[in-house]
Write a protein that binds this DNA or RNA. Structure first.
Length: 272
DNA sequence: AGTACGCCCTGGCCGC
DNA sequence: TGCGGCCAGGGCGTAC
């Protein structure tokens, strides 16, 4: 399940291979992937011959800057962006639904078992407006004060962390981990958090996201980096998918509840 | 604006 | 060993 750290790891892997290159050929073989935009053939046609000027990330989205237009790729639950150095070693399987052949050599493949991901084009000037995402939690603009303002709403803190329109890029894993590290129960009303808790949560959000990137992501099921390798961060998870196991801090069994239709993991003793 | 729910999709897992 | 049924869950659409 790719969240901000996983997307960032892949982006960093890919930058050196794709930026400056031209898209020679595109094949999108799964029409579901382009469901929010034009048909696969139209997207293919619009991409061929374009040069990748930059590869950015916004929340959990890849933004390939092609000049006038930008190619947006979102991995959904099980999407993978895989880089193959040469056309010859490219090994697509039944889950490989799109391929981008780049100038020089190299194939960027999109693989997605559950097909929740998306590929679409947007005019570059309207990317921000259309994606309508909240603040980037690793950028300087995300301060404790900004988090405090977001927490003024009446919603519970975990659904708020998952709300992409408020904070972009946090998903289920990093929300649970950040709440554990700040000692805050996922069911707490955001507006009930004190200034000390806000600061602690702010620090924890940045720390878990940075640790996720440093350890090359969380491979719970299908996440792989651009070279097909799993990340190592799962070994450092303190609550996510650890229900029934002892809390690393106090030994109390980690509990799992469902909150906002999401599996939610926390220590009933350490998180208040 | 919040909250809840269904939908999309497939592999993995459980129970019989 | 086989198979039906359920579950995970990001994001969106819809309803209240």
């Amino acid at each position: 399940m790719p969240e901000l750290p996983e997307v960032e790891v892949i982006r960093r892997d890919l930058v050196r291979w794709v930026v400056g290159r031209r898209i020679r050929r595109v094949e999108i073989t799964e029409p579901r992937l382009t469901r929010r935009g034009e048909a696969p053939r139209q997207v293919e046609k619009a991409l061929v011959g374009r040069r990748v000027r930059a590869l950015r990330r916004r929340g959990k989205n890849f933004v390939f800057d092609l000049g006038q237009d930008s190619l947006i790729i979102r991995l959904g639950m099980t999407g993978q962006l895989l880089w193959w150095h040469g056309h010859d070693d490219f090994r697509p399987d039944q889950h490989t639904h799109a391929r981008f052949l780049l100038s020089g050599s190299g194939v960027l493949a999109y693989r997605d078992i559950r097909k929740f991901g998306e590929i679409f084009l947007l005019p570059s000037e309207s990317v921000e407006r259309t994606l309508s995402l909240g603040v980037e939690p690793l950028e300087a603009i995300f301060t404790p004060e900004v988090l405090r303002r977001l927490c003024a709403s009446s919603s519970k803190i975990k659904p708020l962390l998952l709300n992409q329109a408020k904070i972009a890029g946090i998903g289920n894993i990093y929300a649970d981990e950040a709440l554990f590290r700040s000692g805050i129960r996922p069911t707490r009303r955001a507006a009930s958090l004190g200034w000390h808790e806000i600061r602690s949560l702010h620090r924890a959000i940045r720390a878990v996201l940075q640790a996720g990137i440093r350890h090359r992501g969380s491979s719970i099921s299908d996440y792989r980096d651009a070279y097909g390798r799993p990340g190592r961060f799962v070994a450092l998870h303190r609550v996510y998918h650890r229900h029934g196991k002892p809390c690393c801090r106090c030994g109390t069994p980690i509990r799992r509840i469902v909150l906002g239709q999401r599996g939610t993991h926390f220590c009933p003793k350490c998180q208040r």
